[in-house]
Nucleic acid binder design. Structure first.
Lengths: 253, 253
DNA sequence: ACCATTCGAACATAACCGATGTTCGTTCGG
DNA sequence: CCGAACGAACATCGGTTATGTTCGAATGGT
């Protein structure tokens, strides 16, 4: 099922930086055989990370685009787990929570799996974590899952969210700055995030430090709409101060 | 992850038939060690199949109740695959299809995975089969997944189905007889099936031969509402004739 | 309260599965 | 048409999972 994710990450990274790489070059770089490199390239090509040609591969990752879910899932795992644990601590038993898509929110799903609350996940990845949880009530919104991300979007999702009310919305994001607000890469996804926020009394955004460097295409909301941001200790102090100046409670773990 | 499913099946079966079985008896019967039997009983108890007591276990499977999904998934696999292939052949490319819950419908999901159509699955099991399918458009209804079965039910599901229209509804069932119609074990699930049928131009029921012996609690619909039934060659001739007399096209594979 | 029995945690072992490497016939681009 | 790259098929290695064994703890009956 999984090839060495570490090697996949390096291949994707070095190919993105160099634009393109030869099979032989990647084999030399990683110490793996060329056959293994070919198998890796096949996987990455299927994920849309790169394009194969005879002898090598060319990266398809533009600067502004987000890498596929499978790659992001293996990055900064401990930071995400710390953030997720903090979010779980912020939630009270019995609450109803809408849980956004994205890898950090999947970490939150793991952290609340044994809690007693009602959770509405906005991605199938989070949903699959939560099925079979003993004390948790799981409710699905409708919608169309975006490939790879498996984030639910579309009118069905927004209609479902409009007919529900939550104590807390846990929102993930691609970019978060006091100046530009919460941003995402997908317009439909941003609309869903807004719908989730509209139906929630309290909005908690989760963002590891890397998110403060980025601003993505789709604006979700200005930071003034957030009640709280949970991030890690590597978050830039200036941004943290700006968030707090905007009235947002910031937790760094 | 999986212990020998074959042994689990035998344990569940013999315990149901005898009412209760001792650990030593099951060990002698299966040839496995008592420790393995205990581990198996733990699994089956977690699935609600039986109740453990010191020295043995007592079956919780009443005649009328359906065994848990994990057990049914390993029964009559080839018949389900044949039925599923036939259903897939009945569907045209580009169709929109609502796919009911149940193990036979999961087999249908596998059979249509590489087709080009729009599918709305009514269970997460089917959904997980279909995610990542290359040419298939996947759309989710909302709803609450029933534990184990992962069938979506509730007002959210029915509302989602009411806002959609399908060329074909593929309906699974627990019991199917010309006299009592299509029946299921769960009332909420039966309501969802009806909602799916209301939104579909054509209704195809799938039922392996064992379904003709059963009648379950919840009536879904009389057979007159069905356009077609796909079953296997072991279906009792009298029932097949009765279905055809009611105007239903029956395919046996 | 006692004792035989069962239970289950912990370790040992075996069966299995997935990832990687190697070989070699096939395919591709120049 | 040729050399290089590709990928199917098989071999091998390593890790994981299922199963068995042991032994101290827990349990129920008397």
């Amino acid at each position: 099922m999984f090839v060495s994710t570490e090697r996949l990450r390096r291949i994707a990274e070095v190919t993105r930086d160099a634009g393109e790489m030869s099979v032989a070059g990647l084999a030399a770089l990683t110490g793996a055989s060329e056959m293994t490199i070919r198998r890796d390239l096949e996987v990455l090509a299927a994920q849309g990370v790169l394009e194969r040609y005879r002898g090598g591969a060319r990266s398809l990752l533009l600067r502004g685009e987000e890498p596929p879910y499978a790659l992001r899932a293996t990055e900064g795992v401990e930071a995400k787990q710390r953030i997720a644990a903090e979010v779980a601590a912020l939630l009270a038993d019995g609450e109803s929570v809408v849980l956004d898509s994205g890898t950090t929110c999947v970490a939150v799903a793991h952290a609340v799996r044994d809690r007693r609350m009602t959770v509405v996940p906005l991605s199938l990845h989070a949903a699959n974590v939560l099925v079979g949880a003993p004390a948790l009530t799981l409710l699905f919104p409708g919608g169309a899952p975006r490939p790879g991300e498996l984030a639910l979007t579309g009118p069905l999702t927004e209609a479902s969210l409009a007919s529900l009310r939550f104590d807390t919305a846990v929102i993930g994001c691609c970019g978060l700055t006091a100046a530009h607000g919460v941003t995402g890469h997908d317009l439909a996804d941003a609309a869903v995030k807004r719908a989730a926020m509209r139906s929630a009394s309290r909005v908690v955004a989760v963002a590891d430090a890397s998110k403060f460097d980025h601003t993505a295409l789709a604006v979700v909301t200005p930071v003034s709409e957030l009640d709280m941001v949970v991030t890690d200790t590597n978050a830039p102090a200036a941004e943290v101060a700006a968030l707090e100046a905007a009235g947002v409670v910031v937790r760094q773990v």
